[in-house]
C-alpha cells in the first residue's frame, strides 16, 4: 500500500510535504509522466482509481450486449468477429484493472465495488440491444465515441494509464469499422434492412453523444482532471469533435442522424446540434435505465459461478507448490 501521510502540525514535515507537492506539480507542468512509485497527491490517486476502475468496469460490462448476439449473428464470419471483439473488451478491462492496481487498490476490491453497485460503469451499457443492427450502431457510434474519448487518454499524466490506453486504442479501431460495415451491409440491403439500421441509429445517436459526460459547465471534476492532465480535452470539445466526424460518415451510409437541429455552421467551422436530454442521462446513471439491474445481475452471476474454478485453481497451485517443496 502506498504511504499517505496524515496531516501534521510538524513544520519540518509540512515543508517536506510542500516540496513533494512542488515536485509533483513541476512534473505535470513539464508534461512528464507520473509513475507508480512517485509521490502523488491523495486526491490525484483517488481520482485516477475512480476513473480507471470505472473504465475497466465499462469494458467488462460492455461485453454483455455483444456477447448476447454471438449465437444470433447472421454468419460464421460475423460470429467470429463478435467473439474477437468481446475478447478484446475482456482484455481491455484487464489492462485497465492492472494499471489501476499500481495505485494500491486490489483487483478484488475493485470487483467488489462493481458487484455491490458502489462503482459506476458507462451508462451506455444500460441500454438494451434488441436488434442485429444494434451491433452496427454500437460499433460505429458507441465505440466511435469511446475512441474519441480514449485517444487523448493515451497522453494521460499517469504512466500506466497512458500505456494501457495506447494498447487499447490500437485494438479498438477494428471495433468501429466492423460496426460501420454491419450498418453499410444493411443499408445496401432490402427496405426492411435499411429501416432496421435507421431505427437502431435513431436509438443510439443521443446516448452515444451523452457518453462524453455532462456539459462542461456542470462537470467540475473534469476541470481538475484537465489541470492534472489526466483529461486533455473537455467533454463538450470531445462531443463536438465526434459530431463533426460522424456527420460525413452518416452521409456515406445514407443514414439520417435523428437530430432536427443538426446543421453545418460555417462561422464556427463545426456542426451545431440539438440539446441532449440530460434528465434521461441522470436517470440512467442513477439506476433507472433499461438494463441496469440486468447487467449487474449477470455480472454477479458470472463471478459467483466462476468461484469454484478460481478456488480449484488456487488449491491446485498450493498443492503443487507443497509437493515440490517436499520432493526437493
Amino acid at each position: 500500500m502506498p504511504a499517505e501521510d496524515p496531516p501534521t502540525a510538524d513544520p519540518a514535515a509540512a515543508a517536506a510535504e510542500a516540496a513533494r507537492l512542488a515536485a509533483f506539480d513541476a512534473l505535470i507542468a513539464d508534461d512528464k509522466r507520473i509513475e507508480p512509485t512517485d509521490w502523488m497527491p491523495p486526491a490525484y490517486r483517488k481520482a485516477l482509481v475512480r476513473q480507471m476502475s470505472q473504465h475497466a468496469h465499462s469494458e467488462i460490462i460492455g461485453m454483455q450486449p455483444e456477447g448476447n448476439w454471438i449465437t444470433r449473428a447472421p454468419s460464421l464470419k460475423r460470429k467470429a468477429i463478435l467473439m474477437a471483439k468481446v475478447q478484446d473488451e475482456a482484455g481491455h478491462g484487464l489492462y485497465l484493472y492492472s494499471a489501476a492496481e499500481t495505485l494500491g487498490t486490489t483487483r478484488d476490491e475493485m470487483l467488489d465495488a462493481l458487484h455491490s453497485g458502489k462503482a459506476k460503469y458507462s451508462s451506455i451499457f444500460n441500454y438494451l440491444a434488441p436488434s442485429w443492427a444494434d451491433m452496427g450502431s454500437i460499433g460505429w457510434l458507441v465505440d466511435g465515441a469511446a475512441i474519441a474519448n480514449q485517444v487523448p487518454l493515451c497522453r494521460a499524466s499517469y504512466g500506466p494509464y497512458g500505456r494501457a490506453m495506447v494498447r487499447i486504442c490500437k485494438e479498438e479501431s477494428f471495433h468501429q469499422r466492423q460496426g460501420f460495415e454491419i450498418l453499410l451491409a444493411l443499408m445496401n440491403g432490402t427496405d426492411e434492412q435499411r429501416a432496421m439500421a435507421q431505427e437502431s441509429v435513431n436509438r443510439w445517436y443521443a446516448p452515444a453523444l451523452m457518453m462524453f459526460g455532462p456539459p462542461d459547465a456542470e462537470s467540475p471534476n473534469s476541470r481538475q482532471s484537465m489541470a492534472w492532465k489526466i483529461k486533455r480535452f473537455s467533454n463538450d470539445e470531445l462531443r463536438q469533435r465526434f459530431v463533426d466526424m460522424i456527420v460525413p460518415q452518416a452521409e456515406i451510409l445514407g443514414i439520417t442522424l435523428p437530430d432536427p437541429d443538426l446543421r453545418w455552421n460555417s462561422e464556427r467551422g463545426h456542426h451545431d446540434f440539438g440539446e441532449l436530454d440530460w434528465a434521461e442521462f441522470q436517470d440512467v446513471l442513477h439506476g433507472n435505465g433499461q438494463a441496469n439491474s440486468l447487467r449487474l445481475a449477470k455480472r454477479r452471476a458470472a463471478h459467483a459461478e466462476g468461484e469454484w474454478v478460481r478456488e480449484a485453481a488456487r488449491a491446485y497451485a498450493e498443492r503443487t507448490a507443497t509437493s515440490e517443496r517436499m520432493a526437493s
Binding site: 484487464l94 492492472s98 492496481e101 500505456r163 478460481r310 488456487r314 491446485y316 497451485a317 503443487t320
Partner: peptide
Amino acid sequence: AGSLHAPDAEL
C-alpha cells in the same frame, strides 16, 4: 507488456 493475475506459472 503488463501484468495479470493467475494461480500458478503455467496458467
